[in-house]
Amino acid sequence: MTSTQEPILELRGVNKSFGAVQVLHDVHLALYPGQVTALVGDNGAGKSTLVKCIAGIHQIDNGDYLFNGSPVHVTGPRDAAGLGIEIVYQDLALCDNLDIVQNMFLGREMKSGVVLDEAHMENRAKETLASLSVRTVSSVRQLVSSLSGGQRQTVAIAKAVLWNSKVVMLDEPTAALGVAQTRQVLDLVRRLADNGLAVMLISHNMNDVKEVSDRITPLYLGRVAADVAAADVTTGQIVELITTGRSGDIGLSRALAQESA
């Protein structure tokens, strides 16, 4: 399960500054199809900035952004969506007053002429939910306001995979969920990867990270501290990487870690 495959999305030596503040330093990141890569890091480590750079909301200052092995220029969210990169944001971005189908197709409605093609949208929404083995929803015509937190997260994720996307980035998908719902969502995350997508999971919860991810990339003050297989490290080591940038012989060099701090 390692890097014998080509990464679908790769960043090499990416830097990003906001004015005088350099947020990302020489970031290397690789996402592989069929794998869950966890991006972990403390508050302010640059996780959100990194996601927004990949999504095209921020543009990188320098470094290489490769998709499928070839360099691409992502200058806006539409470019990223065009490549097949979808982001599920923490605050979900669903409309409570619309139903599941309407939310999943929001902004990309299928039409025949000027009229919305409800039948096609409804069937495709059902197919997508079924392909993710989502069985807890009794009707795709339910309003989103009637769904539980886990179901809402499920809809948000299903919305992201509806478009034959290749890379799905999930920002804290289980932060606000209960035990059973977290289970549901983690299963779903695993299933996305099993369906061949490259998944990036951003999380604070080490148990979730250990359980579901194949690779772990801790971010320490804007630098990638390491890129390790989840099986090779303990939770304690991950926490150390997050808080000090190094743990034993893995992580940043002592000098670099101290310079960053």
Partner: peptide
């Protein structure tokens, strides 16, 4: 129109 009335931010992110 319904989407903007329901959640402006979601509508914006959906590309509306």
């Amino acid at each position: 129109v319904y989407a903007v009335g329901g959640n402006k931010e979601a509508a914006r992110r959906a590309g509306i």
